[in-house]
Design a binder for these strands. Structure first.
Length: 566
RNA sequence: AGACCUAUGGUGUAAUUGGUAACACAGCAGAUUUUGGUUCUGUCGUUCUAGGUUCGAGUCCUAGUAGGUCUACCA
């Protein structure tokens, strides 16, 4: 009964971010009858990345929280860079992240006829004019932040002439770039975006949806807000860099007398050791530094999916990162925490040896095989048990043996006892070494027959527990170990250095021949496992029937490694 | 230089709107553990500066400082 009180209390105390505060105030004031409708407006000219994930989460979750809806709208007003292929990938990525837009899939290009009429309306009101100036001239007359711009000589054309010219632009009578339609606002405005911004340009490019139907295309500022308005979006959330566009956004809505969507800007999420610049990401792909847009090291949603990051962890991450208006750099350790936290609860435990060292149990009968029962997830009993074959010759991790270990080393060394997870306690009798290289080639042990896991009557306490596989039964697999792509938390923030200077040459390490326990043979691409004591690993789509390929999603926390680094 | 935005522990975000600065991650120390995982406990450390209003300021006012953004026929 106290629980209920606590719940209510915590709900009362729930803190709101600044957007939620705005929305709740709007609801209190009965604005739009309390309706909340958002949109996610990607341009189909690239792949979605971690920054988009934040925007997607904000838009979908905020609307959902207040009983509203979210539209997916492709902002496809520039035919030169946009392609259908991107549309499909973007849709797949959003679905994967866990969001659904039902049938509300819209395209700014669907509104071209309406937008054209809007333009006519502004011309009729004397608020837009056709300018014959070149791009260079327009830029030159724009002024600078400290000096006002100059008015174009074409600014005072008559409404009739503008109407005629604009219609002929649309009809294809002028070559590309010959004319533009501009809003007539204020060439002396402090806000550069108000200095007669361009609304339409002539551009004969094949559009991925409208084909060659149009040779004039609206600019972002004359498409985005109007699209919001057409869809009756109540809260149009975007990143900070659009803050200077807001007066223009509001100006068009006011002059057009259309639905008053409201633009709200928030700071985009930056994550340490990651970059999100399309151009820079593309360069990584083009130069072959990564295998593609879905390389597991990429900050793209497709890359992170392949890496094995669960979508739920990404959502939690975006949520924990918070929403505000100041520049931020979220530590990647928070992302890793969210990934581990979810995978700890959901991933089945298995054993794999990445860097094998042979162990021979001298008092274990040759040819004997025991099926050892091992739990699949200590965090979740319902995931049950599996069996692992145990035999005289095993592989353990090379790091788990030291010829002359220090006190605090809890693993195997001459004369020491150590537990094999789910099996027996071993006593190390000795080892063999290649005299030429000094490499340990084999460890010789005896086992305590009465120390069997779950039925241990030996009374022996082993400090360490190791993972292992039976040499004769293990399967081979390829394992790809990933590390951060860059060696600097903000590789693109240095004025004197290129971000590629910080490319981490060790960001991928391939282990061609690792040994995995036989139960893994049936693993399917997308499957995610905890390799005991090593980390979380996802089955890569490169896997074949003959050979599984695993991607290391993230390591386990490793306090031993931390101690060693000190 | 002009306009706009922002300023709270190492990082990020809160603070019931003027009333004891908190939560998470990271760090450190310890307990538990058949994963040096998980879990648990403890600990470190915060309101940009200077004035002002007020019984009382992270919150309001003024000035400064610092960082960011803006001058594409991109979005």
């Amino acid at each position: 009964m106290n629980e209920l009180n606590n719940k209510e209390e915590s709900k009362e105390r729930e803190s709101l971010n600044f957007i939620e505060q705005i929305i709740e105030e709007d609801i209190r004031n009965g604005k739009h009858s309390g309706r909340v409708h958002t949109r996610f407006p990607p341009e189909p000219n690239g792949y979605l990345h971690i920054g988009h994930a934040k925007a997607i989460c904000i838009n979908f979750q905020l609307a959902s929280k207040y009983g509203g809806l979210t539209n997916l709208r492709f902002d496809d007003t520039n035919p030169t860079t946009e392609e259908t292929e991107y549309v499909e990938n973007i849709k797949r990525d959003i679905r994967w992240l866990g969001f659904d837009w039902d049938d509300r899939e819209y395209y700014a290009s669907d509104y071209f006829p309406e937008l054209y009429e809007f333009a006519i309306k502004l011309i009729r009101k004397g608020l837009a004019y056709v300018d014959d100036s070149s791009a260079e001239e327009i830029a030159e007359m724009k002024g600078t932040p400290t000096e006002p711009g100059r008015e174009s000589p074409f600014r005072s054309r008559s409404i009739e002439e503008n109407l005629d010219l604009f219609q002929r632009m649309r009809a294809g009578e002028f070559p590309d770039g010959a004319k533009v339609l501009r809003a007539r606002i204020d060439m002396a405005a402090d806000n550069m975006h108000l200095r007669d911004p361009i609304m339409y340009r002539i551009k004969r490019d094949h559009h991925h949806r409208t084909g060659d139907e149009w040779c004039i295309y609206p600019m972002y500022d004359f498409a985005h807000g109007q699209s919001d308005s057409i869809e009756e979006i109540t809260h149009s959330l975007c990143s900070l860099e659009f803050i200077h566009h807001r007066p223009l956004y509001d100006w068009f809505i006011e002059k057009l007398e259309i639905f008053p969507s409201r633009q709200i800007e928030f700071a985009r999420m930056n994550v340490s050791y990651m970059i999100t610049s399309k151009r820079r990401l593309l360069k990584l792909v083009r130069e072959g530094r990564v295998s593609g847009w879905d390389d597991p090291r990429m900050p793209t949603l497709s890359g992170m999916r392949r890496r094995g990051f669960p979508p739920g962890a990404l959502r939690t991450f975006c949520d924990k990162a918070g929403t505000a208006k100041r520049e931020n750099l979220i530590e990647i350790s928070l992302l890793e925490f969210c990934v581990r936290d979810e995978l700890n609860r959901t991933a089945a435990r298995v054993m794999a040896v990445l860097n094998p060292l042979k162990v021979v149990i001298t008092n274990y009968p040759e040819g004997k095989v025991e099926d050892m029962e091992v739990e699949n997830n200590p965090e979740d009993e319902s995931m049950g048990n599996r069996t692992m074959p145990f035999s005289r010759e095993l592989y353990i991790e090379r790091d788990d043996f030291m010829e002359d270990p220090p006190r605090k080393y809890f693993r195997m060394g001459p004369g020491r006892d150590v537990r094999l997870k789910g099996a027996y306690i071993l006593h190390c009798e000795g080892f063999e070494k290649d005299p030429a290289t000094g490499e340990i080639t084999e460890v010789r042990c005896t086992y305590y027959p009465e120390s069997k896991s779950g039925a241990d009557t030996s009374g022996i306490k082993a400090k360490g527990t190791l993972h292992w596989v039976s040499a004769a039964h293990a399967k081979e697999a390829e394992v790809r170990l990933y590390d951060r792509l860059f060696t600097d938390p903000q590789p693109d923030s240095h004025e004197d250095k290129d971000y590629l200077d910080f490319f981490n040459p060790d960001s991928l390490q391939v282990i061609e021949k690792a040994y995995i326990e036989p139960s893994l043979a049936s693993a399917q691409p997308g499957g995610c496992f905890q390799f005991l004591r090593l980390g979380y690993f996802a089955v890569d789509p490169d896997s074949t029937d003959k050979k599984l390929v695993f991607n290391r999603t993230v390591t386990l926390k490793d306090t031993w490694a931390k101690m060693q680094n000190k």
